[in-house]
Amino acid sequence: MNINLNYIEVFCHLGQNLNFSQTARELNTSQPAISRKIKLLEDELGYELFVRSNKTTSLTLKGQAFLDQVLPSFNTISGAIHNKEQKIDLKVGSIFEAGEKYLLSALNDLHENERIGHFDLQFDSAINLIDKLQAGELDIIMTHIIPAQKSLSFFEVFRDGTYLVGPKKEDGKRKRKLVTYRNEDLYTEEFLHKTLGKNWRSKFEIIGCVNSHKAMLSLCEAGGHFCVVPESSFNNSGGLKIYKKKDSSHGIYICVRQNFLENRDTKRLIEELINCLK
């Protein structure tokens, strides 16, 4: 007798949960496909494995005996294959601060637990990360921008607050010096408009921009500037003061290509990564 191992896999899943729909979801297939494989296995064995009714599914006596016989061996084989497949090498990208503070720790945990093999983490702007992900240069990215491309999927992992920070002692000038993330920093302008009102420009003078939140905070501490930064970027060393705070201002997302989720092992890995971050 030469039985297809895929039929055994289907039988072991169904024999444990006794639910055709759940088995189909677990194996990323359709319910008719599950029914067909069980029927083919029963034809090979020469006896029925399940008693089916409109509302319930149960094992026959021979079905239970067969499950007791094959399940330990199947679990051993499945575990060996699963462990081998799970050591996936990943190319990961992230906006700098959230990646350094959260994503790197989660990836290290997965690596130490032998869930992933080697991973390469690079930092870039959200727009560049999305372009690289879509081009296949990266497998996973962490960003605060929801991608518009239909080929990409995103999952919110947490909400990030926003701070207006500056020196503890102000110099008494009428306008405060404000440094931004880019020339047209809509993130900063939207935050100041919502928290200080439409006349916020009468209180701040934008004097320049830098390319990282760390550099912005350094200017604030060393030069008496102000800046608007995500909560995930701000680690107060004692030289700065929070002037305005807004909770849950935007989401932080894990993004992947949709075809990356079609593989059951990589889909499971994404779920574990998201759980590590939440």
Rank of each mutant, 00 (worst) to 15 (best):
M1H: 05
M1A: 11
N2F: 09
I3R: 01
N4S: 09
N4T: 00
I8Y: 05
I8G: 06
C12Y: 00
L14T: 11
L14Q: 03
Q16G: 10
L18S: 06
N19S: 03
F20R: 04
Q22A: 14
Q22I: 08
A24W: 05
A24F: 00
E26Y: 05
E26T: 12
E26V: 14
N28T: 10
N28I: 04
S30I: 05
Q31S: 01
Q31H: 01
A33G: 01
S35Y: 02
R36G: 10
I38G: 07
E44P: 12
E44I: 03
L45S: 13
G46V: 10
Y47D: 00
F50Y: 04
F50N: 08
R52T: 15
L59I: 11
L61D: 14
Q64E: 13
A65F: 04
F66L: 14
Q69Y: 07
Q69M: 11
L71D: 00
P72Q: 12
S73E: 13
I81P: 09
I81T: 14
H82C: 08
N83E: 09
I88S: 08
I95K: 11
F96P: 06
F96E: 15
F96M: 15
E97S: 13
A98W: 05
A98F: 01
A98D: 07
G99F: 06
L103D: 01
L107G: 05
D109W: 07
N113H: 09
I116N: 12
D120V: 00
D124T: 09
L133T: 15
L133K: 13
L133D: 12
A135W: 08
A135T: 09
A135E: 12
L138Y: 01
D139Q: 09
D139W: 04
M142N: 13
M142P: 06
S151K: 15
G161W: 01
T162Y: 01
Y163G: 03
L164Q: 07
V165W: 07
P167I: 06
E170R: 09
E170Q: 07
G172W: 04
G172V: 02
L178T: 11
V179Y: 00
V179W: 05
Y181A: 03
N183R: 15
E184Q: 12
D185V: 04
E190R: 10
K203G: 08
I206T: 15
I207W: 00
G208T: 12
K214L: 02
L217E: 02
E221M: 09
E221P: 14
G224L: 04
F226I: 10
E231I: 06
F234P: 03
N235S: 14
G238E: 07
G239C: 06
L240H: 00
K241Q: 15
Y243D: 00
Y243Q: 03
K245Q: 13
K246N: 14
H250A: 15
I252Q: 03
Y253A: 11
I254G: 06
R257Y: 05
R257I: 08
E262W: 03
E262M: 13
E262H: 13
N263E: 11
R264D: 11
T266A: 12
N275V: 10
C276I: 09
K278Y: 03
